[in-house]
Design a binder for these strands. Structure first.
Lengths: 295, 295
DNA sequence: TGGGATTTGTTCGTATGTATG
DNA sequence: ACATACATACGAACAAATCCC
């Protein structure tokens, strides 16, 4: 039945999605490697709908993360980058010593070998701690902290944004290098051990998913689609006396990141290659249905 | 002067967001406890813009998760539920025995005491494993699995969707209760220990964030906004001989869930009350700016 | 370098459909 | 049955970014 009833844009979106996933769009393309959809005017005549209706369909596809539109250029199929698997369990619990099939970044994140981690210069700030930071680090609200911020790249691509907080007193009582905007090659934890005698005997991680802020959108190249969210992990490190002495906040783009934790005895191959290799299944939003409900 | 320049909807969205967060909208409301925005027609005259432009603004607010529109009823400020903190580290590593300030659900998830977990009836299916399941459980693609699916509620509210997979051979070789759609009070792991001698000596977790499918949207009452994403945790449990014998996939609504992991020695109060209590800071999308960019 | 064509972005106007109360 | 309110759809014009000759 010819539905003069609404939902015209859903039909168009469904059909476009099908054509996108079948790959039969813009056959003779290849300009910048991105697949391009026909211009709105063409879709208008192809589907016999008004431009606004076509735009409603494209808008839904964009919101769901399937396409992205760029003024003056066109609408393009979104290319989702490869998944990066990051292991966050402690180094001590996981790999046998001498294992060379992976590397730890900052003793916090384990990634497969053969991938290269590069970092931006450290940006150091001294700030009054927010209530949240003070609570995590068990200090008085209003006390000062050193924050050390870095942009992390994996194979030259944006990978994570990381900020560590330390009580300012650490820097004034021996660990002065915390204040210098330079990398600490041996790692901040080891340095705090040498200078102040701290050692990390445990940590607590809190994981959330949220919408990125403008800065994160720029760095990770994220848009407004529902697929463009970030993980935020907050790691609190504890010394033997139960004092929190480091707070590290890391932000990861969730569309290309999987977080892994190991606990207890886990086979070596799982430790080495989390995610298990080949193609990752990617269950996305199901095609628009009139009403998927069964009650 | 009628400004013909673009971005009219951004101005409206910014202003509406400000009014929402200031709380000065629909002063005399209270019908169902939800704050309601003025109808589109009113906003049309209030801002001196066309209805379509007002709708563009509302559409953005909805996409960002600030409001939700319901046909025939109105547009309402979104009420984000309280955050639930869930600890996923193994029971053995964490709490001292006899600690009564919390409870483990299924030995997998630790939540504060005083909250009540209820579960739906178990839905049991026997299915050919997907490639992914077979890979995780180290079996041949095409072999059969028992899946046990449950809806979990916390204080009567939807909390998580959980599905566990076991090789069908487990059920045919002694652990027949896996096939019955009834709860296994002592826990499936303990039951597999009694019947088949399996014990869980370690596990591996993989965490992702993704857009919910239609079923998850219904269960968790999620919409299409970018704030409406879910965590999916995949837990693989290992026995002493390194064999994976259980695969549990759990889906959590990310807007009201924080995941926690402990590792090593962590103070007791952190173990007991992850999230540290009072109000959770909720950095959301910053108000729309003309262009936050510098390049 | 310029200028016109292409393509998406924004805004307005209008009409009708559908859900709610 | 009627009014309210959001959803869908069409048509039209101009703005802004990009592309191309």
């Amino acid at each position: 039945m010819a539905r003069t009833t609404p939902r015209r844009w859903r039909d168009i979106a469904t059909d476009l999605l099908q054509r996108i996933e079948a790959g039969d769009l813009s056959p003779g393309d290849g300009s910048s490697g991105r697949r391009r959809l026909p211009p709105e005017k063409d879709l208008e005549s192809y589907y016999g709908a008004s431009r606004n209706t076509v735009r409603d369909a494209l808008s839904w596809l964009q919101q769901q993360g399937f396409v992205v539109s760029e003024q003056g250029k066109g609408t393009f199929v979104v290319h989702r980058p490869n998944i990066v698997h990051v292991t966050l369990s402690a180094a001590e619990l996981g790999l046998a010593p001498g294992n060379r099939s992976g590397q730890w970044y900052n003793r916090d994140a384990f990634i497969p070998a053969s991938r290269e981690v590069t970092v931006s210069p450290v940006k150091v700030e001294v700030q009054e701690g927010t209530k949240v930071i003070a609570r995590y680090l068990q200090t008085n609200p209003g006390s000062e902290f050193v924050s050390r911020h870095q942009e992390l790249f994996l194979d030259e691509r944006p990978w994570a944004l990381q900020t560590s907080f330390y009580p300012l007193s650490f820097a004034t009582e021996g660990a002065s290098r915390l204040l210098y905007p330079r990398d600490i090659p041996e790692g901040a934890v080891a340095y705090l051990g040498e200078t102040l005698g701290y050692s990390e005997v445990g940590f607590h991680d809190e994981i959330r998913a949220r919408i990125p802020d403008e800065n994160e959108k720029r760095f990770f190249n994220l848009g407004d689609s529902a697929a463009d969210v970030v993980f935020e992990t907050v790691r609190t490190a504890y010394s033997p006396d139960g004092k929190a002495f480091r707070l590290t906040v890391t932000v990861w783009p969730a569309d290309r990141t999987r977080l892994h934790y190991n606990n207890g005895k886990v086979p070596d191959d799982v430790l080495r290659t989390p995610g298990l290799g080949p193609s990752d299944h990617a269950p996305r939003e199901s095609p628009p249905a009139d009403d998927a409900g069964s009650g």
